[in-house]
Computed example of a mutant assay.
Amino acid sequence: MPKGFTFLPSLALAIGMALPLAAETNADADTVVARVNGDEITLGHMIIARASLPPQYQEIEDKVLYDAILDQLIQQSLLKQVQGGEMPKHVALALENESRSLLAAETIEAILREALTEEALQAAYDEKYADGFGGDEYNASHILVETEEEAKAIKADLDGGADFAETAKEKSTGPSGPNGGELGWFGLGAMVPEFEQAVVALEKGQISEPVQTQFGWHVVILNDKRKATAPELEQVRGELAQQLQQEAIQARVDELTKAGEIERPELEGVGPEVLRQLDLVQE
């Protein structure tokens, strides 16, 4: 929704004095609710203003907001007219950006509505879980210490035949240490990336080289690996919907980019720092 709609102090007065509104109306978006020196304010303007209010105002009763919003639009019209019809460059540019953004959002909404059908969701589900299984799950244990030197020494002991669980109980600083370092079953995304990458690279029973994460240095053993049972469609509906939407938007953008005539001329002597030069848009 359009930005730039802000309340003047009249809101506080309106909250205490507003009159109830009729529950039904035959008006439409073009219905004129006020004229300010000939400039018309319509019900559509008010509806958009209401929809663009910040969250703290959204909960106020409509009967309270009606007069406050109309007063606000009247005051804005009066202040706007002081400019005498002149359009400062930075205002014109902001309006162009806002128009571009809103119209692009309308296109995106249309793409999303077309892409997100029950048939498309079912097809995406069938494709992803056709074999009846979800992603891989891993059962791993680890030994966590503070330094790489400690981790390397532990790895050498394990390679020499030391028992992993007993070593974890004795030397691991992590909360799983007393349990022999066992982390149980987990899927992708459950662990920090560096740890996950180490686990995925292991074969069952294999012990990793020392791995550093934000928590310290780990030595990891993969106890087992399995396929998760496929979830029900309702369990992954949100995930699949997001995937379909992203793919549809990207496909449309790629299509438009390929078909469009896009020019990006080289600008001599212009660097990224130009973005800070507000004086260029002032008149």
Rank of each mutant, 00 (worst) to 15 (best):
F195Q: 02
A153N: 08
E247D: 08
Q245L: 02
D224G: 13
M46S: 12
D39L: 08
V145E: 03
A156M: 11
A12R: 05
N97H: 05
P2W: 07
I60D: 10
A92S: 01
D67P: 08
E150S: 10
R50P: 01
G160R: 05
L79T: 09
G132I: 01
R100F: 11
L244C: 04
E209C: 00
L267E: 06
E194Y: 03
R226S: 01
E194T: 14
L79S: 05
L116C: 02
E261T: 15
Q197T: 14
Q122T: 13
V236I: 05
S208Q: 11
E114M: 09
E40L: 03
L70I: 09
V236F: 10
L112P: 00
E263Q: 09
D279F: 09
H142T: 10
N139S: 12
I60Q: 12
K204W: 06
E106G: 07
L280G: 08
K204R: 08
T117D: 07
A68K: 05
G174S: 01
D254W: 07
D131F: 02
R113D: 11
Q72A: 11
H90D: 15
Q282E: 15
L144Y: 05
G16T: 08
S208K: 00
I48W: 05
L188K: 15
S208P: 06
G238W: 06
A168D: 03
T117N: 14
K204C: 00
A156W: 11
T213R: 00
L70K: 15
E106Q: 13
M46D: 02
R264D: 10
